[in-house]
Simulated assay, not measured.
Amino acid sequence: MSAPVLIGLTGSIGMGKSTTAAMFAAHGLPVWDADAAVHRLYAEGGAAVAPLAALCPAALKDGEIDRAALKQWIRDDPAAFGRIEAVVHPLVAADRAEFIAAQSARFILLDIPLLFETGAEERFDLVAVVSTTPEEQRRRVMARPGMSEQMFQSILAKQLPDAQKRERADVVIDTTTMESARHDVDMLVARLRKEYGDA
């Protein structure tokens, strides 16, 4: 059997990535979610719990890693972020590889928020970026519970600007409306099946 076609899905905060990933799943594509993988690693029994607790004992609460405690550590110690990444990145990569190896589907979607920021684009046969207008992005993000303008700007500062993501993408999916997103996903899946075949 030929190797699966790997599709990377990415986009900035509030661009509709999770909703778009669900549309690919509705077409039968297995979906791996980087954020969900991190949650599994941080949960009780997760592979990141022991090494992160050794680095930051205050982060261990009820057998799990408390993200708020990690964020506080990063605020207190600028070197902390790199030390956390050194533990978590290899574990996430292993989780992703295990997921891919377990699939028999022709196409696999990998939902990775910081795909370009981590230099991961070369691992994929195609990279799709979800995007909408800055106004719609702001509306969605500011509607989230507990979100502030300062938090929004802090998150944006860590992400490659949307315009640069669009330039580097193989495909841009317009998520301004559900209809536009579904249309773009349907067109991409049809194109992939035509180019690569279903099996």
Rank of each mutant, 00 (worst) to 15 (best):
A53D: 02
A54M: 08
A54F: 09
L55R: 02
C56K: 04
C56A: 14
P57Y: 13
A58N: 05
A58Q: 15
A59Y: 08
D62E: 15
D62K: 07
G63K: 09
G63H: 11
E64Y: 06
E64F: 08
E64C: 15
I65H: 06
I65C: 12
I65S: 06
R67T: 08
A69R: 12
A69H: 10
A69G: 10
L70G: 05
L70Y: 07
L70W: 08
K71I: 06
K71L: 12
Q72L: 15
W73N: 03
W73K: 08
I74W: 10
I74E: 14
R75T: 15
R75Y: 12
D76P: 02
D76F: 06
P78Q: 02
P78G: 02
P78V: 04
A79N: 14
A79P: 09
A79W: 13
A80D: 04
F81S: 11
G82I: 02
G82L: 01
I84E: 00
I84R: 00
E85R: 07
E85T: 11
E85D: 14
A86P: 04
A86C: 01
V87R: 01
V87I: 12
V87L: 03
V87N: 00
V88F: 01
V88E: 00
V88R: 00
H89A: 03
L91E: 01
L91M: 08
L91F: 06
L91K: 00
V92M: 05
A93W: 07
A93M: 05
A94I: 05
R96N: 02
R96W: 08
A97F: 06
E98N: 03
E98T: 14
F99V: 07
F99T: 01
I100V: 13
I100Y: 00
I100P: 00
A102M: 02
Q103Y: 04
